[in-house]
């Protein structure tokens, strides 16, 4: 059986704690394993904070970010949509994780780890909006 959670938040980093609470309840009721809940919340945290920090110029708090979680048998799909500047998270440069810590760039880890935790990521620019879909296969505690 499918289930969906739809949330809309203003583009403020402070919104994330409430979003995390609401998504945790949904994912737990969907029977997701603890490590899958961690992975999905990590992806949500990184994609949301990236939008807040980089998608808008000076009026970011007047913009909304739409979040959807879909639970289908064996799959959770996380979707985020914003009307900020065009940004494909799959185009972000990958950090060199073999560099010593004193030579590492500080940015880029969040999206890189998100890509590694997810089963797949899809990005589209639709009607002037960024739409990112992140799929997590077999997230259930019994998988």
């Amino acid at each position: 059986m499918s289930a969906t959670l739809d949330l809309t938040a203003s583009s403020r980093i402070e919104e994330l704690s409430t979003i995390a609470e609401q998504t945790a309840v949904f994912l737990e009721s969907a029977g997701c394993a603890a490590n899958s809940i961690f992975a999905i919340q990590f992806a949500l945290e990184e994609l949301f904070s990236n939008i807040v920090n980089y998608a808008f110029d000076h009026d970011r708090e007047s913009h909304s970010i739409a979040i959807r979680l879909e639970h289908d048998p064996g799959v959770i799909t996380l979707m985020l949509e914003d009307d900020g500047r065009t940004f494909d998270p799959l185009s972000a440069p990958l950090p060199d994780t073999s560099l010593p810590v004193d030579q590492r760039p500080i940015g880029g880890l969040g999206l890189f780890i998100t890509q590694r935790l997810a089963s797949s990521i899809d990005y589209r620019r639709v009607d002037g909006k960024n739409r990112v879909s992140v799929r997590f296969v077999a997230p259930s505690a019994n998988a």
């Binding site: 961690f38 919340q41 945290e45 990184e46 810590v101 004193d102 500080i106 880890l109 969040g110």
Partner: peptide, 16 residues
């Protein structure tokens, strides 16, 4: 129970 990449950045800066 949870860390964001911001904590990894904190650890990198701490290691420096």
């Amino acid at each position: 129970p949870f860390v964001a990449s911001a904590f990894l950045r904190l650890c990198i800066l701490a290691a420096r």
